[in-house]
Design a protein around this nucleic acid. Structure first.
Lengths: 132, 132
DNA sequence: TTAAATACGATAAAAATAGTCGTATTTATT
DNA sequence: AATAAATACGACTATTTTTATCGTATTTAA
């Protein structure tokens, strides 16, 4: 309950790994996968997604790989989570509107209050705090 | 991602329903299920669990049902979630130790920092804040 | 005695997550 | 120019988790 997905987990591991290296130096998906025993293909997809989101930069070809692109201080955990996994909320009704409950539901307002607290909390934490 | 389960959702709906009634009055699982269009048996199990946890009280026999037992001000959301779903944490490594990573993992410490923040946040919110 | 309610283990169904496969593209190296 | 090592990514499969149902027992008011 209230769990992160592997995708996010692998992303954090990879970022932390990249951050520990000399600036500008590239790391490949294979290298990270072997270092931490992660499924390479799945990790690669996660890295590709982060590249699309401009968090990291991808370099193709042999001796290619990935390196950190953004300033991780400026990315909140909330934004990071949402880039990888979509809207952050304790319950779907926060952004879905196809809930069958409609009028009957009696917890929508309190749930949104919890959501706000969560989003607020993750807004205040930067990605660097986690990766450094 | 970072979602509540239905069990918790149903529990909150039920609590809120009971709280809106005259003190001491009983409500049945059937009544709540019909009012909010929830699966009765699953809701019943959730109510039974809350009864075991002494959050609500169960009365058997016809004209039986459930009613609030605890002072909801004194139950934190953290305790409530953990009673229903077990330890609250963004990742299993917080309480599991059978993670294959063992030494290799490089995000255990930062993850635990996030966990602490989450637990702290939910410790500060009472169940009543959500149900009132 | 009956019926309406809780209690709960076992199982089934559905959904979400995790992982793999195959193939295309890019590009440094030879 | 050919090769090989890397990223890119859609489609698919497997696994796990969540959600829901079934069946039966127990309690107790009427």
């Amino acid at each position: 309950m209230l769990k992160l997905t592997r995708k996010v987990e692998y992303a954090l591991i990879a970022l932390r790994h990249m951050q520990a290296m000399k600036p500008g130096k590239l790391t490949s998906a294979k290298e990270i996968a072997e270092a931490y025993g992660l499924p390479q293909q799945l990790l690669a997809k996660t890295l590709q997604q982060m590249a699309r989101d401009r968090i990291i930069e991808a370099v193709q070809g042999p001796s290619g790989g990935y390196r950190i692109l953004s300033n991780l201080d400026k990315i909140s955990l909330k934004d990071f989570f949402e880039k990888l996994e979509g809207p952050l909320g304790i319950m779907d009704c926060y952004f879905d509107s196809d809930c069958v409950q409609i009028g009957a539901c009696n917890i929508r307002v309190p749930i949104q209050r919890i959501n706000e607290n969560m989003r607020n909390m993750f807004s205040k934490m930067s990605l660097r705090e986690v990766t450094q």
